[in-house]
Amino acid sequence: MNVLNFINSFFSDNAHWQGYDGIPTRVGEHIQYTLMALGIAAAVGLPVGLLTGHTGRGGNTLALIATSARALPSFGLMVLMFILLGLGMAPVMIPLVVLAIPPILVTTYEAMRSVDPAPVDAARGMGMAETAVLFRVELPVALPLILSGLRSAAIQIVSTATIAAYVSFGGLGRYIIDGLYQRNYEKVVGGATLVAAMALTTLGLFWAVGRLAVSPGVRRRSAGGAAG
């Protein structure tokens, strides 16, 4: 099968392992874009989702924002930002952040809403302060779902960050775009394999974080809802 041959020859070519277009550099760039976009999206989405979910207000507004954000085409948005803002990090970050915010925001909101109200009532009745109710009672229970929102955001960013190459940026998309123009399918397949591998690594990382951060008492209960 030629895809496998492509993969094999791409990774066995020494030239692909060094220099500014080497695999380590490109993977590093891709990770950088991903972490930046995920960081910004989480910095916006998590607090807003936690707060609106905790108070139960603004759910409809959130749904509206999420639907609108989802409707924006990432690729087109990037090109648009590129001509508006010129060459720079912003045209790449904006579409990635717009892409990542809906899953984080909506899932966090829903995760907080779906927390059983009885323990929350019990916690308040015991005289627990409101911030403690949020962070010690609701958050631990909502955590698996919140993580799943972050996870799907991360995976979408990893896969979409490839388009950055179209506006002269690096990352793994470089191989795909360059390979496309050079009719070098070996490069395309190699790049695609790397992106897929990174997405799977991301899945694995989130699984590990879930194992470490989620209490066994919660993990067991939400085992059925881990679908992604």
């Binding site: 990893v158 896969s159 395309v188 992106v195 997405a199 799977l200 899945l203 679908a227």
Partner: peptide, 22 residues
């Protein structure tokens, strides 16, 4: 099945397109 679909979803669209050109 969930695992397979999750993995499929992780393949970037651009790469998917390009591989299919062949």
């Amino acid at each position: 099945v969930l695992w397979v679909t999750t993995v499929l979803y992780a393949i970037p669209s651009l790469a998917f397109f390009v591989i299919l050109i062949d």
